[in-house]
Design a protein around this nucleic acid. Structure first.
Length: 201
DNA sequence: TGGACGATGACCT
DNA sequence: GGTCATCGTCCAC
């Protein structure tokens, strides 16, 4: 049920990004559990990906997390106010990661409503990477945490989507990545209301 | 050591 | 469609 450490050693972050759709992301904070179905992801593919923080092999205090062996959380602050959560994949020193861009609330909806100060019926509660992380209570303290531990983990609930239910399109907010901005490394579940905009092809 | 800049979202018209 | 909040990170000085 809980994804094992072996799952995260996969060296194909694009494949993992697609495979994570339908998996369930859990957090347990102060004994309280919340979880959501992953419905939107983006792959950041190693040192040759211009959109990645690790492009060109850049190694800094922040990016060091991405160079860890797969199976840890990479969380960083974006625009001074949003915590973005990534799943680190692949082997040590290969900085691949998958950004979780949206979840569908599944467990602990009341907790999410408190954190987001809006009803769980409203799609904005967990739509977009900043909102999804906040709904689950993920902040910078989760950076480098083990994804097979007791605070944050991912489960396989046998939710499977057909090929035609999954869309692949260019990633969001990375215009600076030039030609790499067009790579279809964003995946989402078609028609799911929690998918962030733009949610059409 | 300072200043530009985000893998965004909320609220406005 | 437009504006702007807000701060850690990175690199040029």
């Amino acid at each position: 049920m809980k994804l094992s450490s072996a799952y995260y050693l996969n060296q194909d972050a694009v494949g993992v990004a697609k495979d994570l759709l339908g998996k369930v992301l859990f957090t347990k904070i102060d004994g309280e559990i919340s979880a959501g179905i992953i419905v939107e992801t983006e792959a950041y593919f190693g040192i040759n990906d211009k959109a990645s923080h690790a492009y060109g092999g850049r190694r800094t205090n922040r990016t060091e997390t991405m160079y860890s062996q797969g199976g840890v959380a990479y969380v960083y602050l974006c625009y001074g106010m949003h915590h973005l959560f990534n799943v680190v994949t692949s082997v040590k020193d290969e900085p691949h990661a998958v950004l979780i861009r949206a979840i569908e609330p599944l467990v602990g909806k009341d907790l999410m409503e408190q954190r987001r100060k809006m009803p769980a019926t409203k799609s904005a509660i967990s739509s977009g990477p900043g909102s999804a992380a906040r709904a689950l209570g993920i902040d910078r303290k989760f950076n480098t945490k083990d994804l097979t531990g007791e605070e944050i983990w991912i489960e396989d609930h046998q939710i499977r989507y057909r090929e035609d239910e999954i869309a692949a399109c260019p990633r969001v907010g990375i215009a600076y990545a030039q030609e790499h901005a067009l790579l279809p490394w964003r995946f989402f579940v078609r028609g799911n209301k929690y998918v962030s905009k733009p949610n059409k092809l």
